[in-house]
Amino acid sequence: MEQQQFLYNLENINTSMQNVQEQLSTGKVLNLPQDDPVAVSQDMDLAQEISQMGSDLSTISSGLSWMNATETALQGMLSQLQQIQSDLVAALNTPNQSAGGLAGYAATIRQLIQGVYQIADQKLGDRYLFGGQAWNVAPSSYIEGSATMPSGADQNVAYQIAPGVSINVTVTAYSIFESTPTGAVNLQTTLNNIVNHLESGDVTSLQGDLNDLNLNLTNVIDANADLGARIQRMTAAQNQMQQYQTNLTNLKGGIEGADMAQVMTQFSTDQVIYEAALQMGAQILLPSLVNYLPS
């Protein structure tokens, strides 16, 4: 009985040393499900939540890249349109403007308009920034050209950044060029009218074109402001998720992480106990009948 009890205790001490040694090598207290079933379940739930949070943050990062590129393009477009506005005002305010002078303004503004359409065709990767859901079709092909607008070109792309939460990340060329402000024609028609009236010398109609351009400029400025608001919302969501992910990671580390100082102390203590048990066992265990057999 003494031998059986001794071997049982020795095996327990040895098992404890092995567990502590595994904690030392992995830095974790949870290495097997049986170590702590409740804690292991909590740890797995946290790992799944952290993984989902990482996926959401990746989506947000992709959306912000798209929106920031779109904002830069919109600001370039606004700059070109404001230059067109400035040239048109100069043409109207120059007294006794000759047909040749108006034609010169027409040539300059035509180049600026081409620059506007080039910006509308900017890409991020292989996708057109202002293409909406028709991301693979150049917007100028149906805005400036005579091609039929493809399906989805007037619809925004929304990214889901959390369960039940989606944010539009696009500004469509349709909303810029085809959307008609109250009291004006759309931007595409306005730009065409400006060039035509300059080339024909129709100064009277140019004043109406300037009014239309001012209203369309306001429309583009509003679109840019709305995009900026969405960027702020997306950035705020990103910051909140990063903080939450950090908190979850710290909580997970607190559940599964080992206190290395305590583990090392426990390992040293187990070693001393194991060696003492071996020495004591050698002294107290009774000799067997074999010891009395003649040699």
Rank of each mutant, 00 (worst) to 15 (best):
V38I: 08
Q42R: 11
Q242G: 07
A106W: 03
N12Q: 14
L46F: 04
E256N: 10
L81S: 00
G132K: 01
S86I: 00
Y105G: 02
E275T: 14
G104S: 14
K123W: 04
Y174S: 09
V157T: 12
W135L: 14
N93I: 02
N136F: 12
Q232T: 15
S140V: 06
Q262D: 15
Q283S: 03
Y159K: 11
I13D: 04
D259E: 07
V40A: 08
N68S: 15
G125P: 00
E11W: 11
M17T: 11
Y274H: 11
E71Q: 13
T204P: 01
G257Y: 01
D212R: 01
N193H: 05
T190C: 05
T235H: 04
F130L: 03
P163I: 15
Q271W: 01
A134Q: 03
K123A: 12
N12A: 13
L64H: 03
D209H: 06
K252T: 07
T180V: 11
A103C: 11
L30F: 02
P37Q: 07
A158C: 06
M1F: 09
A103I: 15
V29H: 05
N214A: 08
Q85W: 06
L10M: 12
Q122P: 07
Q21C: 06
E199D: 05
Q97V: 15
Q118W: 08
D121V: 03
G145H: 09
I194D: 00
S166R: 08
Q114H: 14
T148H: 09
T269Q: 13
Q188Y: 03
G257D: 04
N193F: 00
V203E: 04
A261E: 05
A69W: 04
Q82Y: 01
N219E: 08
Y8T: 15
S166H: 09
I221A: 13
N19V: 13
N291Y: 14
N156K: 12
I13V: 15
K28Q: 07
L286W: 14
A277M: 05
L112I: 07
S55W: 15
G281E: 02
Q242R: 11
N224F: 00
Q238R: 13
M44E: 14
A99N: 09
G253R: 12
Q5C: 04
L293P: 01
V165T: 11
L46Q: 03
N93T: 04
A39M: 10
V89M: 10
A47I: 09
F130Y: 01
N250R: 07
N12W: 10
L74E: 01
T94H: 04
A106C: 00
N14G: 08
S98P: 03
Q83M: 10
L10W: 10
L187E: 10
Y117C: 07
D154L: 08
A147K: 08
L293V: 12
Q3G: 02
A147M: 06
Q240F: 09
L278K: 07
Q245N: 10
M260S: 09
I60E: 05
F267C: 06
L112N: 13
N214F: 03
G254I: 00
D270T: 07
Q75F: 09
Q122F: 08
G253D: 09
L286K: 13
P37A: 03
Y244S: 13
E199K: 06
T148P: 06
Q114N: 15
G132A: 03
Q262A: 15
G201H: 04
Y244K: 06
L10G: 12
T190Q: 00
S205K: 09
T70M: 02
L92E: 12
